[in-house]
């Protein structure tokens, strides 16, 4: 788990969140209020999905057929929205005591790459798929360069 988490406030603009994603290379940003309580997350996938229409899944490959005004428009306008308008709430969270196997299972069954770690609703860190990959690389704690 990573304790140094880049977070955004609900009133941050999507453009600022996007810049933060680019500079930190973090694909998932937890959204927290002034008291550090987790409100939801904003992820790369959330933002990209936001640029596309709701009916995308129903029309499948036909969507590739043309250049669409709405896409360009969305690219221009989505950045001005506050993060609270696009955040995904209700995604799974874990605590520091949650066993790693359970965290891994959550990632696969709920299709999330990062899971916020909370203590009584307050964000304390984030655990990602790379943390689990690290366990494969260094099965025993002594081998882990991060400790």
């Amino acid at each position: 788990m990573t304790r140094e988490v880049s977070t955004v406030s609900p009133d941050t603009t999507v453009a600022e969140a996007a810049l933060l994603m680019l500079s930190t290379r973090h694909g998932t940003l937890p959204v927290v209020d002034s008291g550090g309580r987790l409100l939801g997350v904003v992820s790369k996938a959330t933002l990209v999905r936001r640029l596309l229409p709701e009916y995308l899944e129903q029309v499948g490959d036909l969507y590739r057929s043309g250049e669409f005004e709405p896409f360009r428009e969305n690219v221009e306008t989505v950045g001005m929205l506050p993060v609270k308008d696009v955040l995904e709430a209700g995604l799974p969270t874990v605590t520091e005591e949650t066993p790693l196997a359970e965290v891994a299972a959550l990632m696969i069954t709920r299709h999330v790459r990062q899971v916020p770690v909370v203590r009584e609703g307050v964000l304390v860190g984030i655990v990602g798929m790379m943390d689990i990959i690290g366990q494969i690389a260094w099965p025993t704690p002594e081998d882990n360069p991060d400790g």
Binding site: P53, Y55, Q58, V59
Partner: peptide, 15 residues
């Protein structure tokens, strides 16, 4: 069910 999504796509393309 299949006409409506196609219609939305066409309307978007037409603006």
């Amino acid at each position: 069910l299949f006409m409506a999504p196609i219609t939305l796509l066409i309307a978007d393309a037409l603006g």
